[in-house]
Amino acid sequence: MTTIATTEEPTAPARRRRRMPLAAAIALVPAAIIVAVVYVGCMIWTVRLSFTSSRLLPNLDFVGFSQYERLLSNTRFLTSVENIVLFGVLFIAACLVFGFLMAVFIDQRIRGEALFRTIFLYPYSMSFIVTGLVWQWVLNPTLGVEDTLHKLGLTFIDVDWAVNRDTVVYALVLAAVWHGAGLVMAILLAGLRGVDADLWKAARVDGIPTWRVYTSIVLPLLGPMIVTAVVLLAISVARLYDLVVAMTGGGPGIASDVPAKFVMDHLFERSNIGLATSAATMMLITVAIVLAPWVYARYVRPQVPR
């Protein structure tokens, strides 16, 4: 037998199917259940409900796109969309500019760096409810900053932004920038500190002015960090709810309503599940369109086997 075996071509060992590590699979069960039931299941459920006529209680009839038609002619929803777009653009832009400036100025070998850093970032540790309530009080038209300024004789300055339907979104932006600009500062400062010290030396030898080094050399290097900051800020824009509830309650009237609040109110107070879920689906689609390519490029594609 053995002689025969050795004279023949050695057969390739039967390709053993790699055994699935059972314990590892079991460990992933909780996460898998959450993904399946909540992230996939609940999402589908919500989308399905948006095609029903559900009001106080869910039913499973099918009314096509009629909830969406109603939604798109709903003044309150349209206002909330308008608000979130305006808020989002201003908030992200202001945080980026202000945060970048703070990071650059802190990077100038200043005294008390740690103190400034701590001051710029502390609002980020607090909740949007706290942020909203503080700014509601600071901007209080009868007793807040406006009152103080008027008593000082500066009667021409009006700070009634939070109660004026034309400016209330700007007031929200102000409070949100107070809360979030430090985050951008922290991210970009980490980026600035990561810039090769030799690069700064080379620029000095070449006689390049400091501002020019920042705009032409450093800023492009911060690209990935800026993207990260934008993504984080964008998530908080999409979720914007607490701040509005605490600071303005969506008012005056519906002047500072936002989609997240529209959904919550229609779910829990106005008992219009069909309309609420269709608005939630609209939010979902918007976010998916904006973020799916980014997530794909970043996480799904680069699967280098380790």
């Binding site: 090769d196 030799d198 690069l199 030396k201 080379a202 620029a203 032409s216 050399i217 492009p220 290097l221």
Partner: peptide
């Protein structure tokens, strides 16, 4: 320089 310190981009 050791790290070349070329201006990126």
């Amino acid at each position: 320089f050791q790290s070349y310190a070329l201006y990126p981009r």
